[in-house]
């Protein structure tokens, strides 16, 4: 199987701090990958590098075999990669439907003017993340944290990504909400969505992924099945400081 997203020897320095230190990993089409590691391991930096919010100092990032490192963020999204954020970033004055609408828009001024929105499409995406029809007219300020995560997922899914980067999707959620989002991701996984997921909630993570990469100080220290990675000596000492 050809790899959908490949990072090769990626280095990112912020001043004197090496956030990503020659990291390499890949994710195949239809695969789900967990990126685990202690705080400050550089997980979110990896997402920012893949999205082009930061540029790496060296190394390559390829999507579908094509180098995307020189593309601006919006072009990378058009190529098929999208991310969610630890802190959801909705368009605060727009309702749920409006938020999804922005995600669905073509990057073409003429089409934005001449072609209207697609309410059915918006509804379908909203439903696919578990919103009820009445939720479409709700503003982000009226939503619970769990619903904000759903909205973040919906807006990201609306860009029709081939691979999704999910950053701490369980943070700040109640047990019930975690279950809901887990169920949703399991569903998406079954439908063939490729994703890389970062979370501190390892228990929630395990059933959602095919494979895991553990990292610390910007380096991969173990790779393999989730349980193998968790049993790894280096991983245990990185987490527990032994």
């Amino acid at each position: 199987m050809s790899s959908l997203l490949v990072l090769d020897n990626v280095v990112k320095r912020f001043g004197g701090i090496v956030a990503t230190n020659g990291l390499s990993f890949h994710v195949d089409r239809g695969e789900s990958l967990a990126l685990i590691g202690p705080n400050g391991a550089g997980k979110t930096t990896i997402f920012s590098l893949i999205m082009g919010e930061h540029r790496q100092n060296s190394g390559t990032i390829k999507l579908n075999g094509e180098e995307i490192s020189n593309l601006p963020t919006h072009k990378r999204i058009q190529k098929g990669v999208a991310r969610t954020y630890q802190v959801p970033r909705p368009f605060s004055e727009m309702d749920v439907a409006g938020n999804i609408r922005v995600g669905m828009m073509p990057d073409n001024l003429w089409q934005m003017i001449t072609r209207g929105a697609d309410p059915d499409g918006e509804l379908a995406i909203a439903r696919s993340v578990g919103f009820r029809d009445a939720d479409l007219s709700r503003k982000p300020s009226e939503l619970s944290m769990g619903d904000l995560r759903k909205l973040e997922l919906a807006r990201t899914l609306a860009t029709r990504p081939e691979v999704m980067l999910l950053d701490e999707v369980f943070a700040g959620l109640t047990v019930g909400e975690i279950e809901q989002i887990s169920h949703l991701l399991a569903e998406k996984r079954k439908q063939g969505l490729t994703y890389i997921i970062v979370s501190h909630d390892l228990r929630a993570l395990e059933p959602l992924v095919d494979r895991a990469v553990a990292m610390t100080f910007g380096k991969a220290i173990a790779e393999g099945s989730f349980s193998d990675v968790m049993d790894d000596e280096a991983v245990r000492s990185a987490y527990l400081g032994q």
Binding site: M51, H74, M94, A117
Partner: peptide, 27 residues
């Protein structure tokens, strides 16, 4: 039109607009 929506979105969160695959410079 949708361009009005997109411009409104820029004032709310410009990063999220480019994070939706839209060229904010052009908008």
């Amino acid at each position: 039109t949708r361009i009005g929506t997109a411009l409104d979105a820029i004032s709310m969160n410009e990063e999220a607009v480019s994070g939706s695959g839209l060229n904010t410079t052009r908008l």
